[in-house]
């Protein structure tokens, strides 16, 4: 079908941060940054992504995962992301919940190969 792609088919993956999932990969000393080979569109509070490498799967981010993706066009330490999110959510959400959500989002993005840990200076440009 030309002119439109159906989203919601089996080839699309909706990624949401598992709120209770705060597993720390244990590499907090290295910043994370968005992979460059990703095509992106934003709509409302969502982000549509298509990673050119691998299976060219269309992915749809929402909520904390989308927000985390959007700030990772520049390298950032997970601890800094958490601190910023906790500040933004001050008085609205429990800091522990916010931290868990942000760390979960980073983990989801890493597993989907949408972001990576910076290994050297050449790598720090982001998308």
């Amino acid at each position: 079908m030309s002119g439109e792609a159906r989203v919601g088919s089996s080839e699309e993956t909706e990624l949401r941060a598992p709120g209770a999932r705060g597993d720390d990969p244990g590499h907090d000393s290295r910043p994370v940054v968005a992979n460059r080979d990703v095509l992106e569109r934003r709509v409302g509070g969502e982000v549509l992504l298509l990673r050119r490498a691998g299976d060219h799967e269309l992915q749809r981010l929402a909520g904390v995962t989308a927000a985390t993706w959007l700030v990772l066009d520049r390298p950032a330490l997970v601890a800094d992301l958490v601190a910023e999110a906790v500040e933004v959510a001050a008085g609205v959400a429990d800091p522990a919940v916010v931290e868990s959500a942000v760390r979960g989002a980073v983990q989801v993005l890493l597993e989907a190969d949408l972001i990576h840990r910076v290994v050297d200076e050449d790598d720090e440009v982001g998308r």
Binding site: G3, V43, L58, R60
Partner: peptide, 15 residues
Amino acid sequence: VGALAWCLRLEDRLC
């Protein structure tokens, strides 16, 4: 969203 998803497919091919 459907239209944008198609745009991403097109840009993937464009690359």
